[in-house]
Design a binder for these strands. Structure first.
Lengths: 339, 339
DNA sequence: TTGAAAGCGGTACCAA
DNA sequence: TTGGTACCGCTTTCAA
């Protein structure tokens, strides 16, 4: 039950550490270790329950076989689903993943990045707060392999995998217009994130294209921490304003849930009085009354592509940068029906 | 930008590695290193962007400062929320966490346990498949610090943090009875998990206590992988049986969602024809039509307690085993109303 | 075909 | 107050 090291095996068998190490790493044939010796080593190792110490191996080889994942919040289903995918794929390639939540705090994120570097992770996948220009720049300068997901820094040329946020929102706005809505509001969270910004852009542009006015109060940006307490007033003013909305696009799944909760509280009929569409999805959105139309993000693909790119970078450090923008999908449900 | 080691600093400053190490670990005063030397070291280290290699440190000290987390599925919101809590608390105590999803596969879980041990994690938190009796026994025998969450092995005496599953279900059944339901069904997933088993126990016992018969077909256990395809038939037979149900308790949140989907498809009115209650919760359950009554699990506390216990074990290896059973909470919504 | 030894980047004990 | 050195467990080069 006690820890068995390569040295123990070597001594127990009257061999040298190098021989044992070679055999155990499957390089026995390559180095022409006799079949007999190999067998003895393998058998003995098994008997003694030898387990290699990955810290030692990592220190020696310079490869920790660990990847770092930094996201705002693992309990957000969007990131959780991505995390699952990343961990799975990484594991299949022999990597373990260390994850940490930044809680949208730039300082926390910064600490996490450095802490992971100290831990010698070989690469990093980050859904950044986008407030660590400096650090991301550093990573890039030191040619440390990393890929940004969900949010990227427009000013820095890095690997990233994001979705077409503007396009997704455009699709949503168009759909509302298609069902004859003309006074369309947009509820989002405080800007600062490229992804969120792009959603606003998508909204404004589409409104413009269709010649619809964006009235005073049509665009609301709530705070990340307090959106739930801010929501009631926001919804209320939107529906009671002189020019009240007849459609709302929500920029995230949790805003949608919160907003709908308010609408119901105010006895506003969805979609008759106000049609709504959500950017991104929640599990039970199809069971909600009314079932919620949503823009779908390709979470699995985000995770897969991110790992792919990272692994490629680990093998070939000087590979060109990859920037992937994935298309969103769309599922139409009753929350935006004409009726 | 290149890696700076303690050796580099020592050489650059004409000091010894030990001196530098001591200073950098804040043990300078303790060992009476001159203030001057300390300053020089600290300044130089900062200039050179010295970052300690945690692999090396871990190898040397025997403490990796990493915890392992093994759960069935990080994208299940229940585990995701626990994971968030665990990671947070662990970080506050200087630990990073490596996570992996077992996908309910015993083999996978087994691999993961060993892979994490190889990585030298100092402790493990596992929501086990409960099919690795052997391995868990091993861990215990070698006195490796670990705590089970959500599911435990009744035959093995280990640390664990679980919820009162039977009690939670009992509460649900009682509520259905309170609203005058008498033919109550129970839809669960395939047994093998203690938590799931206890939910069945809770159901049966409560039915018995109230003198209600558990008719043929009242209890259904679906498979973990295929519950969605099995659900239609299950629901159909339950509501169309000679003795059809007028209430259903679902053993998990995803079963509830899936079941409700079917009920709606069949145009069965909830709760008038069939009242339902869910064990465990989803984010939008209050928005669903009808809003779903649910038994709530104290996820935050599960995570917190697990980390607490683990950390205590790391400090004092021979501390007595801790077995925590947390009470569930209950939120009553329309899905089980009399109307 | 196998062994000896250096080194990865730290820590820590014992001397000086 | 500081330095020398062994050691953590494994890999890898060079000799034998």
């Amino acid at each position: 039950m006690k820890k068995v090291s390569i040295k123990d095996i070597a001594e127990g068998l009257g061999l040298s550490k190098s021989t044992v190490s070679l055999v155990l790493n499957g390089r026995g044939d390559e180095k022409r270790i006799s079949a007999d010796t190999q067998e003895r080593v393998i058998k003995y190792a098994k008997e003694q329950h030898y387990k290699p110490n990955q810290l030692a191996r990592g220190l020696s080889t310079g490869k920790s076989e660990m990847l770092g994942l930094i996201i705002p919040n693992i309990s957000d289903s969007f990131y959780a689903r991505i995390a699952r995918r990343i961990e799975r794929k990484a594991r299949h390639h022999g990597y373990n993943v260390i994850f940490s939540s930044s809680s949208e705090s730039a300082d926390r994120e910064k600490e996490l990045i450095y802490s992971m570097l100290d831990r010698q992770v070989e690469g990093l996948i980050i859904a950044s707060t986008q407030k660590n220009q400096e650090e991301i720049g550093q990573l890039k300068k030191m040619k440390f392999p990393f890929v940004l997901i969900d949010r990227h820094y427009p000013e820095i040329d890095t690997n990233y995998v994001v979705v077409d946020n503007a396009g997704g929102i455009a699709r949503a706005v168009e759909e509302l217009i298609r069902v004859a809505r003309k006074r369309i509001g947009f509820i989002s969270i405080e800007p600062g994130l490229e992804a969120i910004h792009q959603r606003l852009v998508g909204y404004r542009e589409t409104m413009k294209i269709f010649g619809l006015p964006v009235e005073e109060g049509f665009v609301k940006e709530l705070s990340y921490e307090n959106y739930e307490t801010e929501m009631p007033e926001v919804i209320q003013t939107m529906v009671e304003a002189p020019v009240s909305v007849d459609g709302i696009v929500f920029a995230t799944h949790y805003l949608t849930a919160s907003g709908l909760r308010e609408l119901k509280g105010l006895n506003i009929h969805v979609p008759r009085q106000v049609a709504i569409i959500s950017f991104d999805q929640m599990n039970a959105f199809d069971l909600v009354e009314p079932p919620i139309t949503a823009v779908l993000q390709p979470v699995d693909e985000i995770g897969d592509r991110a790992v792919d790119i990272l692994l490629k970078n680990l093998q070939e450090p000087d590979i060109p940068i990859e920037q992937v923008t994935l298309e969103t999908d769309f599922v139409c449900r009753k929350s935006c029906c004409a009726g």
